[in-house]
Design a protein around this nucleic acid. Structure first.
Length: 809
DNA sequence: GACCTGCTGCGGAGTG
């Protein structure tokens, strides 16, 4: 029997069958609903939404823009366009589909200005830019659908807030507008829907694709436990075990945690297996786009056997499935690991296999914890941003540059979003005054008088210069200023950070993008290089973000620690680790899920206190500061602090009164927020955070395309404004936002609160140890690294190991 | 605002 659905008829002609969730989505969309389709990549999620859109509009023969398709990544736009175009043709519809991103050519833009395609694929930034035109309102008059692809990727950052605001604005003028999100599984799926739909969420529908895929975690283990380093992060010791995995597979993705690790692995793989030359490449965000595109295409065509990458290949390029995935070092979160694993074994019913290469002993436990987490479907949530006033004031100027706005109407919309439900009248007036006068402190500067209120009460931007500069600054991603690395003949290799290049002088050789490069000269923000034959060279590192261990991973680790002693354990890595665990047990203890281990060591360096909450390094940084601050209340004492993802260390020249402190409840949650802010240098942290806020809010200008403002300059103008506001306008909303953000995202206040209250219910195992344990050793090394060069560190680590009673191989 | 390990993502003028 012929299906009533257009898309299903086309499916049938190709011999495909619709999934149950696709039909469910089509029906709900046909009923006029909004909602979210929860489906993994590669499961036909695009068609699940597209089919509904076609069904609603097929009889209307639309002309002009009826459907906006938002993607967080430009690279995905092309694939969506391809799928949509194919389906439209298959269904015999003559609708047009087009792309509008920063890559869209001028001619194409002009064409679109005359007549928009029926379906437009765009990014949140480009959508804001479209609104920031005089045509801003007219463009969307016929709009019926907004599809937000990969919504889980947007909702955890300020780009999500940009979407919320734009959606509220569109919804206000188009009551019949239907919004659909497409999202991978996250822990707070319903919240994700609520945020996407704003005030209309009550009627929202969640369509779940029940396509659970089996994932097999295969640990890559050394021959004996002695070969596993106690501390380290590169994992290079297991290189010889990784080579055959790559050789035996048709195509492999090797995920690393940092860009420099990616460079090192690429280089070392080539050295260990010269036969891979020409068949292996590398991919990370500092490599030029030209090279990256080449790598993506080559992988797609099967010209490459393996690519070493960072999370730059997490999303985007939904290339032909890869046969094998290798993860080097901890992925830090379950979702990220599962997503990467899902890149292999795309055939229905196929098992995804992922090789996990631990870089030190405790990561062996992470390997087992990951397996368990996948089994139990433990998945991280995405925390939405709220009250991001920098994004709000940017949006208000965007509207004023575009069609202009009327205050009461926009306030109503803004309040309908999840991010700004709680905005008070006072805060709203502050925003209006900020965009018109710069606020109390900055009103003396004309640059901040961006928006004017016309006689009929509309807020608009009149100055061409201000409009221009605003359009240049739309978006919520603030990049660091970087130096461009170029060959003498002009070929662009990629970008590198100033602090790294400043250590080199002309003639020095470094390795970057898989090539040996000799520094010729540095001029302004341009680094000129020539190819070198030299084999040795420094590998650059970049100051990227840090990814702390997720709460879910931490909890799973705490559970798994003791399992190494359980004879019934089936995890190979836990069996493997048990000799080392015996050592830990002899010297100290292994905490169970209801225990907190604290180790006290006296060495020539002084008195060390090690605490192991397994909460990730951000939380540990805050906890360590709070603990140090509270301990100093007992007696004057100073500490140096170190931490990793498993625990932290307080080191002091004097004895640490830990027993007394424990007796008087040093882990109390009482006055926690106050103690956090007292103990960490909140002002400095907020000052740094303020740089991005100032850029997003339009307080500092980041420069013209190709002519970025120097980092130093940007930092100092933001810092100057920060100081001025702190002094004269301490209740400034952007200033307060900087402090809120460090509490929420840098110190992970919520998680820290939970950790403290969990510890209150835990039994404390205080152990006075005589020698470093496998647990504390990596933290000690971490602290040393900050003072020593790499070579001396290596020697020092060997010495430490001997002192710790471990044979050095 | 550095670092010694530390991810990712987007956007963009006027020149008559």
């Amino acid at each position: 029997m012929k299906s009533p659905f257009l898309l299903e008829q086309w499916f049938a002609s190709r011999g495909w069958r619709a999934f149950v969730f696709q039909r469910e989505a089509w029906n709900k969309i046909l009923q006029g609903k909004s909602g979210i389709v929860n489906a993994p990549t590669g499961s036909g999620k695009t068609y699940s939404v597209l089919g509904g859109v076609l069904e609603v509009l097929k009889s209307e023969n639309p002309k002009g823009l009826v459907c906006l398709w938002i993607t967080p990544i430009r690279a995905l736009a092309k694939e969506i366009e391809l799928s949509v175009a194919r389906a439209l043709e298959g269904c015999g519809l003559s609708w047009r589909v087009g792309i509008r991103t920063g890559d869209t050519e001028i001619a194409e833009r002009r064409e679109q200005a005359k007549q928009m395609p029926e379906i437009l694929i765009t990014t949140p930034e480009s959508l804001h830019l479209l609104i920031a035109t005089r045509d801003g309102e007219r463009l969307f008059e016929q709009l019926r659908f907004v599809i937000v692809d990969e919504w889980h990727e947007l909702m955890g950052n300020k780009r999500g807030v940009m979407m919320e605001l734009a959606l509220a604005w569109l919804r206000a003028r188009l009551p019949a507008l239907q919004t659909w999100g497409i999202s991978a599984t996250i822990d707070n799926m319903y919240e994700a829907m609520q945020i996407l739909l704003g005030r209309t969420y009550r009627e929202g529908i969640l369509v779940r694709a029940d396509l659970r895929k089996r994932i097999e975690v295969i640990p890559v283990l050394p021959d004996t436990i002695d070969l596993m380093p106690w501390a380290g992060h590169l994992g290079i010791k297991l290189l010889q075990k990784v080579v055959p995995v790559i050789e035996q597979s048709r195509s492999t993705l090797i995920f690393t945690n940092t860009r420099s690790q990616c460079e090192i692995w690429y280089q070392q793989l080539l050295e260990a297996a010269p036969s891979l030359a020409g068949q292996i490449a590398m991919h990370h965000s500092s490599i030029s786009r030209e090279i990256r595109h080449w790598v993506e295409d080559a992988l797609h065509d099967g010209r490459l056997k393996a690519v070493v990458c960072t999370s730059s290949l997490d999303l985007g390029v939904d290339f032909r499935p890869v046969e094998t995935i290798i993860q080097i070092g901890s992925p830090k979160g379950v979702s990220r690991f599962m997503q990467r694993a899902g890149r292999s074994g795309h055939q229905p019913g196929a098992v995804s296999r992922i090789y996990f290469v631990p870089t030190h002993t405790l990561e062996l436990v992470e390997s087992a914890a990951l397996r368990e987490a996948i089994d139990r479907q433990v998945i991280e949530p995405r925390e939405p941003y709220v009250r991001s006033f920098d994004v709000l004031v940017q949006w208000l100027v965007t509207l004023a540059v575009g069609p202009g706005f009327e205050a009461g109407e926009i306030l109503h919309q803004v309040r309908s979003t999840h991010a700004f439900t709680s905005i008070s009248d006072e805060e709203w007036y502050w925003c209006l005054s900020f965009i018109t006068t710069g606020g109390r402190t900055l009103e003396g500067y004309d640059d901040f008088h961006k928006v004017v209120r016309t006689d009929d009460g509309r807020y608009v931007v009149k100055s061409k210069r201000i409009s221009l500069r605003h359009r240049l600054s739309i978006g919520a991603i603030v990049s660091d200023t970087v130096m461009r690395v170029k060959f003498l003949n002009g070929g662009f290799v990629g970008t590198i950070e100033e602090w790294f290049i400043s250590r080199l002088k002309p003639g020095d050789v470094f390795w970057f993008a898989g090539r040996s490069l000799e520094l010729v000269r540095v001029r302004g923000l341009e680094v000129t290089v020539r190819a070198s034959q030299q084999k040795e060279g420094l590998v650059p590192s970049w100051m990227g973000g840090r990814m702390p261990l997720s709460g879910q991973m931490g909890a799973m680790l705490r559970e798994k620690l003791q399992e190494a002693f359980d004879d019934k354990t089936t995890d190979p890595e836990l069996k493997f680790i048990s000799p080392l665990w015996k050592l830990q047990l002899e010297r100290s203890a292994i905490p169970g899920p209801d225990q907190l281990l604290i180790e006290y060591l006296v060495s020539r360096e002084g008195h060390h206190l090690f605490v192991y909450p397994f909460e990730g390094r951000f939380v540990h940084e805050g906890m360590a500061s709070v603990l140090a601050w509270r301990l100093a209340l007992f007696q004057p004492i100073t500490f140096s602090i170190a931490m990793n993802d498993y625990g932290f260390e307080l080191l002091s020249a004097d004895p640490i009164p830990i027993q007394e402190a424990l007796d008087s409840d040093v882990f109390s949650t009482e006055h926690l927020e106050r103690d956090i802010l007292q103990s960490v240098n909140a002002t400095e942290m907020a000052r740094r955070r303020f740089r991005d806020i100032a850029a997003i809010a339009g307080l500092v200008f980041q420069g013209y395309p190709g002519k970025p403002v120097k980092e130093k300059h940007l930092q100092s103008s933001a810092s100057l404004i920060f100081s001025t506001l702190s002094e004269h306008e301490p209740d400034n909303l952007l200033l307060r936002q900087a402090y809120d953000e460090i509490l929420q995202f840098q110190l992970e206040h919520g998680r820290m609160q939970q950790a403290f209250s969990r510890i209150q219910g835990q039994e404390i195992l205080l152990r006075y140890i005589e020698r470093p344990t496998p647990f504390c050793f990596p933290i000690m090394v971490d602290r040393l690294r900050e003072r020593l060069t790499n070579e001396s560190l290596e020697q020092r680590v060997e010495k430490m190991l001997r002192e710790a009673g471990v044979e050095v191989k």
